[in-house]
Simulated assay, not measured.
Amino acid sequence: MTGETPSRAHIRFDGVGKEYPDGTVAVGNLDLDVAQHELLTLVGPSGSGKSTLLRMVNRLVEPTSGRILVDGEDIADLDAVQLRRGIGYVIQDVGLFPHRTVAQNIATVPGLLGWDRHRTRERVAELLTLVRLEPDVHGPRYPHELSGGQRQRVGVARALATNPSVMLMDEPFGAVDPEGRRALQTEFRRIHDDLGTTVLMVTHDIDEAVLLGDRVAVFSQGGKLEQLATPAHLLARPATSFVDGFIGEARAVKLLAVTELEAQDLDGAAGPGDPHPSVTLGATLETALGVLAAAPDGSVTVTDEAGTAVGRLTPAGLHTALRRAVTANGA
């Protein structure tokens, strides 16, 4: 990135609760720390307070108890409009202005903050490139001229326009078809790794939660935090019967997607020019399983990042890797 310096923040929920006048508890007495650079996914059924919690961070909803601190500062003491301008916000239906071009949409907050035209134009081009849209091609277009996935990419770019320290995402990929959704998930994970913005993402999809999150927070009705854990630990060792049921029966399959292939999982040696299909060390076990399933003789060559063969993976090695993941996470 050649433009704005990456920014990130620490977020602290200190005894935060939200109760509506009719007695409905949306969030109940939550204590939670979100680390700098962390991508925390919030998952749970409808009515578990995920979106309410998210909207309390930018004060679209005010808590009825507790405090929310960003880098030690109580957001209740800040001007709400200025707070929102410093927080990226992406929702499912994107909310692009239909009569403004893609470039004008992305430039919305920079314009409100008084950026000059040159700085704004450079930032728009930089962000379109970041989300893998061509500035000269897509910048002049209007939202209705884009696919759903492209509109969602523009929404992400707009949220990143002023390099916010916090980014809130509420079911950001929910309206995109499955193939496009997986591509967007991969792209956003790459963008987050590059920028390091602190992200809270709401999803109802446990697969998305464990694929994207550095940690996953599972909520039940009334905004009760049932478990907070890394994806691998969550899948290997659900803390409550609610979490176990929410994850479902395919825990081992989900664990494949969040566990990387390591050298200790390999069986035998592979020499130069080995004709077997190959997979890279550090690939997910899900990827390795796909390559292994298509291998004619049930084994694949494993290479390092330079393409040098470092060993061979067999079904026994894959099983060893999965057992390692389960054992390492306390199951």
Rank of each mutant, 00 (worst) to 15 (best):
H204M: 11
G213S: 05
E122W: 05
R158D: 12
Q221C: 00
G114C: 10
A175W: 06
V210Y: 00
E122K: 14
R189Y: 05
T240E: 06
N163R: 15
V124K: 02
R181G: 03
T186I: 13
A159F: 01
R151K: 15
L133E: 06
T129L: 11
L228M: 10
L160Q: 05
T129S: 15
L234A: 03
A232C: 05
P135H: 12
A157K: 03
G174I: 00
A183L: 14
G180C: 08
T230C: 05
H233T: 15
R215Y: 09
G111Q: 15
E122M: 11
H204I: 08
I191L: 05
F219N: 01
T203G: 03
V156F: 06
G180L: 06
D244I: 03
P164C: 13
E145V: 02
D244N: 13
V218I: 12
P143N: 11
S220I: 09
V124Y: 02
R121P: 00
E187M: 13
R158N: 13
D205S: 12
E145G: 01
L146Y: 00
G223S: 09
E171T: 08
L225G: 04
G155I: 01
E126A: 15
L128H: 02
R182M: 14
V124M: 07
T203Y: 09
F173L: 08
A229T: 04
T230A: 12
A239W: 05
A161G: 06
L128C: 10
S220T: 12
L128D: 10
L133A: 13
M201D: 01
G111D: 14
L195N: 02
G111N: 14
V131I: 13
P135V: 09
H204W: 11
L127Y: 04
G114A: 12
E122G: 09
R153Y: 01
P140W: 01
A236Q: 05
H138S: 08
P178W: 10
L160S: 05
L112Q: 14
L127G: 07
E226K: 12
L113M: 15
E145K: 05
V154F: 00
E171R: 10
G114V: 09
E134T: 14
P110Q: 11
D193E: 15
A232K: 00
F188Y: 01
V137S: 14
G149H: 04
D136G: 14
E179G: 09
